[in-house]
Amino acid sequence: MGTTARKIALLLMALTLAACQRSVPPVQFHAQGLPQKLSDWQVLVNDGRTLRLNGGVQPFDLNTPLFSDYAHKLRTVWLPPGSSARYEADKAFDFPVGTIISKTFYFPLPAGKGWDGKSVARTDPAESLVKAGQLDLSQVRLIETRLLVRRSEGWIALPYVWNEAQTEATLMRIGALIPLELVAADGTRETADYQVPDQNQCASCHNTDNLARALQPIGPKARHLNRDYDYAGGRENQLAHWSRLGLLSGAPEPAQAPRAAATHDRTAALDARARAYLDINCGHCHSAKGPANTSGLSLDVATDPGIHFGFCKQPVAAGKGTGNRLYDIKPGDAAGSVLLYRMESDDPAVMMPELGRSVMHAEGVKLISEWVDAQKGDCSL
C-alpha cells in the first residue's frame, strides 16, 4: 500500500471510529462514590466484538512493563477537557483532579482456539494486541480493569473484574482469584492463580512515599513514557503526542527527557535493560521512601549501584526468605544472590514481588541473572 493510500485508509478508519463514538455517552468522572460497573465511567466501550477507547481517551504504553503473570495490558488516560498534567522529570506527572487512568489486563487466546474456561496463551507481554485503539474480543480474554482516579481528596484505586460473557466488569473491592492455564508456543502448560488485588493491596504498591501515605501513579513517568506509540493516526513519541494535544505541560523535547530501556531490546546495554526491569518491577517499593525502605534495599533508577542497591549487602530477612544466601546481590554469582532466589520462587512467603504474580517470570530471571553474573566485585574484601 502506497503512502497516499495508507493515509486515506487511516483517515477513513478515524472517521468511522469518530462516527461510532458520537453515539456513545462521553466519559463520566465520578467525584464521589464507588460505581459498581466499569461502564459507569464510559472510559472503554464494549460492543461485544471489540473493546475500544471512548472519545478523548488516550492509549499509552511503557518502555518496560511491570510483569503480571504474562498478562498483556491496555493502558489509557483521560483528562478533563481543557486540563493538562504537569511534567516531572523523575516522578509521576502531576495530573489534575478528574483524571482517570485505566489498565486493562488481558491474555491472548491460544492460536486457533476459543475460550475453554482456563487456557490462555503465554506470550511476550510487551507485544500489544491493541490495533487502532481496539482489542478484538475473539482473540483475547479480558481479566480485569483497574482504575486510578484523581479526586479532590487524592487518588483512589478501583479494581473491576470482567464477567464470563466479556460484556461488563464489576467492582471487586475484595479482589478475586482467577485460575488460569498458561499455554506456551511449544504446547507446555503452567498453572497460574491470577490474583486481582483488593483495594488495600492496590494501596500497598501505589503508596510510593511512606511519609505522604497517599496513592500515586507508577507508570506515567517521563522515563517510562518516552517512546513511540502506534496511534490510529500514525506513529509518534508519546511525550510529544501528549504535549501536542495539550495533555502535558512543561515537557522538553523527547531527546532531552529521560528514557528507560526496553528489556526486550537486545540492542540496548545489559546494564540499562536490567536497571529498567528492576526499576519498574521493584523500585516503587524498594526506594528511599517506598514501603520496603526498612529493608535497606533500593532498586529504583535513582540509586547508585553499591551497597544500598544490594551489592554485597546482607539481607534484613533471615532463614527462608534468604535461601541461606549471604548477600542481596553477590557480584558475579546470581545463584548465590538473595535477589534471584526470591525472583525465582513462587512461594508466597518468599517470592518478590509479593503481589502481582503467581508464576516465575522466566525472561526476567534470565535477564537479571545475566546482569548479576556480569558484575565485578568481591564481598569477602
Rank of each mutant, 00 (worst) to 15 (best):
R357A: 01
V24K: 12
A302L: 15
L215D: 09
K118D: 03
G356E: 06
A261M: 11
P81S: 12
L53G: 06
W162F: 04
L299Y: 09
V45K: 00
Q375A: 07
E153Y: 03
A276Y: 05
L109T: 08
C282I: 01
G55A: 13
L17E: 14
H72I: 03
D193Y: 11
W78G: 07
P35K: 03
Q195D: 00
G364Q: 02
I280A: 10
V24Q: 10
A222E: 02
T267C: 04
V57T: 12
P291R: 15
G377R: 00
A111C: 07
I156T: 13
E88T: 11
M352A: 00
D124R: 05
F93D: 06
Q199N: 13
V97K: 05
S287I: 11
S249K: 15
R141L: 10
R189A: 08
Q314L: 09
D228F: 15
K118N: 11
L147S: 02
F105H: 09
L215P: 10
P331G: 08
A157N: 03
Q32K: 13
N54Q: 08
L339P: 02
T167D: 11
N200Q: 15
G283S: 05
G246L: 10
R266I: 13
G2R: 03
N210I: 10
A334P: 08
E88I: 00
S23L: 15
R259E: 06
Y194T: 09
W162E: 00
H361Q: 11
R22N: 14
E354K: 14
P26E: 10
E168N: 04
V130D: 09
A317N: 14
G48P: 06
I101V: 13
D94S: 15
G133C: 09
G336S: 12
L367N: 06
P331A: 11
P305S: 07
